[in-house]
Every structure is written in structure tokens, then in C-alpha cells.
Amino acid sequence: MDRLQNIEAFVRVAQTQSFAEAARQLRVSRSVITTRIKQLEEYVGAPLFHRSTRMVRLSEVGQAYLLDCTELVGRANDIVDQMRDVSHSLSGTLRIHALPGLVLGNFGVLHSFRSAYPDIRLDLIVSDAVIDPIKAGVDCALQIFPPATTELIARHLFSVRRVFCATPQYLQGHGTPKVPRDLHNHKLGLYSGYPTRDQWTFHHDSEEVTLYLKASLLTNSVHLLREYALDHAGIVCLPTLVAEDAILKGDLRIVLAEHLLSSFWLSAVYAATSRNAFKLRLFIEHISSKFSRIPPWDAALIERGILPSRLVEA
């Protein structure tokens, strides 16, 4: 019996609450997971789970030792990774969940990590969905939402600013908003995934104005919003990460530039006891080293006077 493999199987089943999902994440068959759990239960002389056709939940013994087992698996993987690093053969797979807005058009930072560590394979899942990294079986989620549980850690990477913008053609035909309330008179494209939902707070000098905006197009894709705006269909709210190139080219124009929206932090969210802790630390430190507090897409807009240098944090 490989005790460490069996303990890792126990940890994955506990985290995902599923034998099938644990098998998928560990790339083995479900029967292998079942056998490993059975062997471990026989060895400790107590059931680790209560099973039914609809759910899997920890037994009293399983609950008592889950944290210790999780830390043991994470530490074991960390030691192996460090041993590989010493021998110049750091390898394996990192599963990363990332927002499309970060990856599409900004792949260079990931490419430079691959160049620095060519034997580490990136398994990159690109989606606007909000996930729990543990249940999803990924090492890290690059997202704007704070951690959902105390089992997760968030490492801030850079701020994500948002601006309202439209094409010059749309503004010429429909007018340019002068104050936030003017947005009620326009067709709006809005992102559905912000933590603030339909509530939008604008900051101007020392005043705040909060509006509830109704969208003509509501979507979880900022790239679709960008296309909606470029088709002269309305005014959209985009992160500067996605809009900067079109703004600098003059294809999009920022409106209400002095009425600032709060920004969010793009963070690396991961389990406190990650099984790939050493490789993950290298990955996060590499990304952090590529960005300052003001990321390059914001710096370009600020330098040209298109975007105020002031930042309002959520």
C-alpha cells in the first residue's frame, strides 16, 4: 500500500465531495480511488466517509484528520518540487484558471514563464466563471473575486480599472454623457460578473453618485462587450486591460473620464495547502514581477492624459 497516494486520494475526495471528480483530477480511474480509500480505511480501522448514492461526507475520523492530511500531501509535493529544482529538472503540471480578459492579448507574461521553466506544463482553463480552485481541481484561479472560504489565499497582482466607452460614431449620433445619470438615455452593454451587480458608484472630486443601470446587453464576456461597442451599438463598461488598444487607436473613446468607478484587484487565489506549492509560488512570483501597481495598459492611458492617475479601490 502506498500510504501517501492513499492519503492524497482521501484529501481529493474530501475536497471535491466526489470519488469521480477526485479520480478525474488525479488522472486515475474511479475504481483506483475507491481501492485507495478502502485500503486507508482498513489500515486506520475506521471509515473516513459516509457514502450514499447522492452524497459523500466526512466521518468524524475523516473530519479530525483532514487538515493534517492536506498539509502532509502539500508538503510532500513541495519537497519533491524543490528536489527537482536543485537538480535543474523542475517539471510537472500547473493547472491555472484565468479570465479571458487577462489571457487574450496578454499571453506574453505566460509565455515568459514557460521560457523560464520549460519543463513545467501549463494546463490553462480560460473562462469568466467564478470557481472554487479546490473543487475545480486547479492550482490557482486568477480572478477579481475575493476567496470564497478561509481555506483559500489571495495574492494581489494588479488593479483592474473600468471605464465607460463607445465609438466616436455612436457618440456623434447619440450624444456624449456629461454626468453619470445621462447613461440612462443610452443603450448600455454591461458585464454581469462584477461583485457589485447592477449597482454602479461613480466618484468625482469628493462626491459619490450611485446608480442602478439597466443593460441592453448583459453578458459575462468583456470581449463580447468590446465587439458590441465597436459595432457602434452603445456605450459599454470595459476593463482598461481589454479596452486600452482600441482607445489608443481612437476606435473607442472614454466617456465620463473624471467620474471614476472603483477598481478591483486581480488576484491569484489558491488553496492554503496547495499540492503544487513550490511551482505555484514560482508562477505567482513571476507574474508579480511583470506588473507594478500601475499596469502597462493603464500607464499608457495615463501618460497620454486619457485616464486620470487617481485610483479608487473597491
Rank of each mutant, 00 (worst) to 15 (best):
A14D: 12
L225G: 10
H88F: 09
G92L: 01
D298V: 13
V312G: 02
A46S: 10
V242N: 09
F291T: 03
V80F: 04
V269M: 02
G175A: 09
K178T: 11
V13N: 08
A268T: 00
R162D: 03
T210K: 12
Y117Q: 05
V86L: 05
D298M: 11
S29V: 03
I125W: 12
S127H: 01
R121M: 08
S18R: 05
V222P: 06
E258A: 05
V13L: 06
G105Q: 14
L211N: 05
T35G: 03
D198Q: 11
E313P: 03
R197V: 03
E21H: 13
S18M: 06
D251T: 00
S91F: 02
N185W: 09
R310F: 04
L248Q: 15
H88I: 01
G92D: 01
R27Y: 10
Y191T: 00
D68R: 15
I302K: 12
T34A: 15
M1E: 01
T219C: 08
R51Y: 07
L124H: 09
Y270W: 12
I254K: 13
E258K: 11
E151M: 04
H232E: 06
G175L: 14
R3V: 14
V109D: 14
E71F: 11
A166S: 13
I120M: 07
I235P: 00
R197H: 06
L90H: 03
M55A: 10
T273R: 07
S309Q: 15
A314L: 12
L301R: 08
S115L: 06
V109Q: 04
G193D: 10
H97T: 00
G137C: 02
D198E: 14
T176K: 11
A257N: 14
I302R: 08
F278A: 05
T150E: 11
D182S: 10
F202Y: 14
S262A: 12
L238P: 07
S267I: 04
A300F: 10
G45T: 09
I131F: 13
E227C: 13
F164M: 10
T70M: 14
W297N: 08
F49P: 00
H111Q: 06
S115A: 13
L48A: 02
N276M: 01
H174Y: 15
R12D: 10
G108N: 04
M1F: 01
I153V: 13
D123E: 11
T219I: 04
F19A: 14
A129T: 11
T70I: 01
A148F: 04
I134W: 11
R12G: 07
D132Y: 09
F291N: 13
Q199F: 03
S159R: 13
R3T: 08
V103D: 11
R95P: 00
Y212A: 07
D68T: 06
P168W: 14
V32K: 02
P100T: 01
F202M: 09
K249G: 04
F278L: 04
P146R: 03
A9R: 11
V209I: 13
I79D: 01
I125M: 03
R95G: 02
L225N: 07
A233N: 06
K249C: 11
L266Y: 07
D139M: 04
L230D: 02
C165P: 03
H97G: 03
D231G: 10
V222E: 15
S221H: 13
E42C: 05
H156D: 15
V73N: 02
